[in-house]
Simulated assay, not measured.
Amino acid sequence: MTPLPEHLRNATHARTREAEKRARAALAELVKVGKPISFTAVARQAGVSTDFLYRSPELRMQIERRRAKGGSVPAAPADASGDSSTSAAVRALSARLTRQQETHREELASLRKALEIAQGENLDLRRRLARYEAD
């Protein structure tokens, strides 16, 4: 595997630092306004993924510490609706994928049938040609 060129490495580090800065600012803002602290809340406020927050040891520690100070985090109604809309989206995409798979299976079966017919006709024509050439 070829290592990344220096300019790409630098760009990656700069993006990561910027995301960390946004996450710290989001955490501070949530604390300031007295909202419950959670990885999801910080991620939404900062525009980063929760995975990013969990993988950053420093940010993870800060969020867990702030969350512990505030007690348990109540389930926010926005999270519940986000989960149901996510689930609905997943169900819709799964149904669409299932329909596409069925359509593709039908097309494949049709193409196989046509190929069998074409191969049969080809074999018949070759046999007729062989008889014609023998005469």
Rank of each mutant, 00 (worst) to 15 (best):
R96D: 11
R65F: 12
L111Y: 11
A80M: 10
E102G: 02
S56C: 15
H13C: 03
L30Y: 00
S94A: 12
A28T: 11
R99G: 01
A11G: 08
K35Y: 04
A23I: 02
R99Q: 05
L8Y: 01
Y54W: 11
K21C: 00
S85L: 15
R127S: 11
K21T: 00
V31Y: 02
I37S: 02
E121H: 12
I63V: 15
L30F: 05
E18K: 15
D51S: 15
Y54A: 12
D51R: 15
D83N: 06
G120S: 07
V33D: 08
G71P: 06
P5Y: 01
A46P: 07
H7I: 12
A11M: 08
A26T: 11
A109L: 09
L93N: 14
A95F: 02
T2V: 12
L97K: 11
T16G: 05
A14I: 01
A130Y: 12
A118N: 08
P5N: 03
E116H: 07
S84A: 09
E6Q: 13
G82A: 15
E102T: 03
R60A: 12
E64Y: 04
A78Q: 15
R128M: 02
R9N: 05
K32L: 09
A109H: 10
V73S: 07
H104D: 04
A41P: 00
S81Y: 11
E107Q: 14
L53W: 13
P5I: 00
Y54G: 10
R22Q: 08
P3M: 08
R128C: 00
E107A: 14
R66P: 00
A78G: 12
R131T: 08
